[in-house]
């Protein structure tokens, strides 16, 4: 399976292993790993949803808590002298998808960390390209 659709903070994202993405601030500390809810696993002309997903899990790591680009909030009501201008930077978390795989049994946790480590260097080399792709995509389809 090459990609998964996960739900995080009320939004859904299509992710691949090793990918880095920005999501709304998560309640986990930096460096911690967590499991996101999976809604769909797809790729290679196949897909699995709902009950077929038992035993699968997506492991992600909170790479950093960051602030989004500054946004100017301008408000103005004519003839009433009402004028506001505030800056805002949304609280985001950068996460890295470590693995999309079968849930490992308790005894084989070492194997799981191994695959997670393998995914990491791939992400580093690919992260530059990923961000470039993301910005171009943003131009076409924001959100």
């Amino acid at each position: 399976m090459t990609y998964a659709i996960i739900a995080l903070g009320g939004k859904q994202y299509r992710v691949r292993e090793g990918e880095r993405l920005l999501v709304d601030r998560l309640p986990y500390d930096e460096g911690k790993t967590f499991h996101a809810d999976i809604l769909l696993l797809g790729g290679d002309g196949d897909a699995r949803v709902g009950g077929d997903l038992k035993g699968e899990q997506v492991t992600a790591r909170v790479a950093a808590h960051v602030l989004g680009e500054k946004v100017i909030v301008g408000k103005h009501k004519r003839r009433t002298g009402y004028r506001r201008r505030n800056g805002h930077r949304s609280r985001l978390s950068q996460i890295e998808i470590q693995s999309i795989a079968k849930k490992a049994a308790r005894s084989s946790t070492t194997k799981k960390t191994e695959t997670a480590k393998k995914a990491e260097p791939a992400a580093k080399s690919g992260s530059g390209a990923a961000t470039a792709k993301k910005t171009s995509k943003k131009a076409e389809e924001k959100k």
């Binding site: 659709i5 739900a7 939004k11 859904q12 299509r14 809604l39 769909l40 797809g42 790729g43 002309g45 196949d46 897909a47 949803v49 709902g50 959100k143």
Partner: peptide
Amino acid sequence: IDLDRKVLADLAVNDPAAFSLI
């Protein structure tokens, strides 16, 4: 199936096979 409209539209364009399955 709890997929949102953003995801479904994306699937329709980029992964038609998955969309037919859904």
